[in-house]
Amino acid sequence: MNIIVCIKQVPDAKDVRLDPKTNTLAREGVAAIMNPFDRHALEEAVRLKEQLGGTVTALSMGPPQAKEVLLEAISCGADEGVLVSDRAFAGADTWATSYTLAKAVQVLGAFDLILCGKQAIDGDTAQVGPGLAAQLKLPYVTCVQKTREASAAMLRVERMMDDGYDVVQLPLPALLTVVKDINEPRVPSLKGKMKAKKAEIRVLSAADIKAEPQCIGLAGSPTKVARVFSPEPRSNRRMFSGTAAEQVSQLVEEIRGYL
């Protein structure tokens, strides 16, 4: 099974700040890490490869330093890393990102499965996975918490729901986005690190993937960020105290007041 894992390099959540003037994330001087959900997508891909054979390709769109997460992916079991990088991609929203990744996937050739994280911890939209599937006209399942069955032709997976889970079967090729419950990612191995040390990351430009200039970067992004702000903390909060039983009866009283 040949698998492509989409990996985004994100600022470490511990020190994210907003630039008050531009309303964008201030990324300078902030440690960059592999999007945590994508570590789980990668782990699932490597497990499927160990089970069924095939290859795992890590794909990222980002600036040149995003090579780091692709090398990390190789040290965790990916066979190769591909970076889609071009100044023309700057300012991409989820639509332009999905379009760009789709064009890159088409350049990479035949595949059976694309795995994405459920969401990126910076953009947080959870749109790129489904967007990419739509661009490529692939069946997809989001929020996958478990792979129940995998073969060369189909997957049977569990989709996490608020009140349980759905079991979904889909034909390949397909796309999944995964939640953290799906597995516990391994740490980079010694042999993987040795391999990453020697690895060359393939870099694809806008021209390489034959992207339409009006579909990428700021020009290709219908989303316009009007304003980013922290909501005012709500002030009318009350904490109950006492034993659990006392707190419950206070809560019941409180709710009665509204009925």
């Binding site: 391994r186 740490v187 980079p188 191995s189 010694l190 042999k191 993987g192």
Partner: peptide, 20 residues
């Protein structure tokens, strides 16, 4: 098993016998 996946057991064994 996690330690094994990270190849640390290979450190216990010389290269000639499959380790590093």
């Amino acid at each position: 098993r996690d330690i094994a996946k990270a190849d640390l057991f290979a450190v216990l064994v010389p290269e000639a016998y499959g380790g590093m």
